[in-house]
């Protein structure tokens, strides 16, 4: 199995770069976007296997990006990144069929291991 491509979207460039290091160490190809418009464009252009998407961004926020992704593709695994979770946000993201939530202050190595397992399952179901 070759490397999986993941698109990471966050307006905080420092967090983005740290997450890139973590994902690359976990054998992922990483593409990044700093805002919602760029994210929507890169989903089309780069055709990633999964998206890690920050919720709170200036301009088009993560929920709107998720809504637009879902208009085109209902299956692409999209994991929402958040500094803190709120029930309202979880509810909204679930309405647009988010694949999961990652709390930015949690153990990201564990979270990425979970994502890898979810992607393996997702691909197995697709075949």
């Amino acid at each position: 199995m070759g490397k999986r491509k993941v698109l990471v979207v966050d307006d905080e460039i420092e967090f983005l770069e740290l997450l890139r290091l973590r994902l690359e160490a976990n054998n992922y190809d990483v593409v990044t976007a700093l805002d919602g418009d760029d994210a929507v464009a890169k989903v089309k252009k780069e055709k990633p296997d999964a998206v890690l998407l920050d919720i709170l961004m200036p301009g088009m926020d993560g929920l709107e990006v998720l809504r637009r992704i879902r208009q085109e593709d209902n299956k692409l695994p999209v994991f929402m990144l958040t500094a803190f979770s709120s029930k309202e946000r979880v509810k909204l993201a679930n309405e647009f069929n988010a694949s999961g939530f990652i709390l930015k202050t949690s153990d990201l190595q564990k979270e990425i291991a979970n994502i890898t397992r979810a992607l393996e399952k997702h691909q197995a179901n697709d075949i």
């Binding site: 420092e14 967090f15 997450l19 973590r22 160490a25 500094a83 803190f84 202050t105 990201l108 190595q109």
Partner: peptide, 24 residues
């Protein structure tokens, strides 16, 4: 405030974790 506090905190934590996990 809670968002503004947590965002830098997540960066500090992940920075430390990356070094601890010997990724660099």
């Amino acid at each position: 405030v809670s968002h503004e506090l947590r965002s830098p905190l997540s960066i500090i934590k992940e920075g430390i974790s990356l070094v601890l996990d010997e990724i660099p």
